[in-house]
Amino acid sequence: MSKSNSPINDFMNGIWKQNPIFKQVLGTCPTLAVTVSVVNGVAMGLATTFVLLFSSLIISMIKSLIPNQVRIAAYIVVIATFVTIVDIVMKAQFPELSKALGPFIPLIVVNCIILGRAEAFASKNTVVRSGFDALGMGAGFTLALLVIGGIREILGSNKLFGFVVLPDTVEPMLIFILPAGAFLTLGILFGIANNYEQKQKDKIIQKAIAAERSAKLVTVPAAPQTETEEA
C-alpha cells in the first residue's frame, strides 16, 4: 500500500492540505454565521463532523446500488436524514445551544463540504477510507471554526469559552461579533494562510534550485574533460 492511500494520510489531508475552509472554500456560510463564540463554533463543527462521518460511511456502502442519474438526490436524502437526527438530539439534550445555532443546524444539509466529500471521495473509495477522510475533513472544519470563534470571542466580547480573559479596561470591539467582523476575520485569516502556503512553496522551490546548482557544480568540471577526450 502506498503512503498516499493510508487511512492516516486521508485523515491528515483534511486538517491542513485540503482544509475545507482555507483550501477548498467550502462551507463558508456556517463558518461565518456561528463563530460568535468558541462554544458555538465547536458545537457546529462537531455536529457537521457527525453528519459528515455517517453520511460518508452510508454513501460509500451503498454507492454501487445508486443509479448514476439520481445520485445527488440520493446523497441529499441520506444527509438530510442524519441532519434531522442531530437536530432532534440537540433540541432534547442541549436546548440552549440548539437555540443559539438556530436554523444553521438544519442548514448543514446544504453544507457543500458534505455533498462535496460524498461526490468526490465517498462515492469512489472504500468504507474505511471514506470514514477516515470524513473524520479528517470534520476535524479540519472544527479546528478552523475554533480558531475563528476564538479570535472573534476574544476581540468582540473579551471572553474565551465564556470566561473573561481580558481586563475591563480593554473596550470590547463589538464589530467582531457582528456580521461585518465575521467577514473581516475570515478574510484576514485567509490571507495569512495563503501567505504561509506561499512561503512553504518558495522554500521548496529554493531547495530544488539549490539542489540543482550543487548537482551542476559536480558535473561542470567533468564536462571539459569529455571534450578534450573527444578532441
Binding site: 467577514f183 473581516l184 478574510g187 495563503n194
Partner: peptide, 9 residues
C-alpha cells in the same frame, strides 16, 4: 477570496 471577504465585511 481573502480580499473578497474583506470587501464583504
Amino acid at each position: 477570496v481573502p480580499i473578497t471577504l474583506i470587501t464583504a465585511g
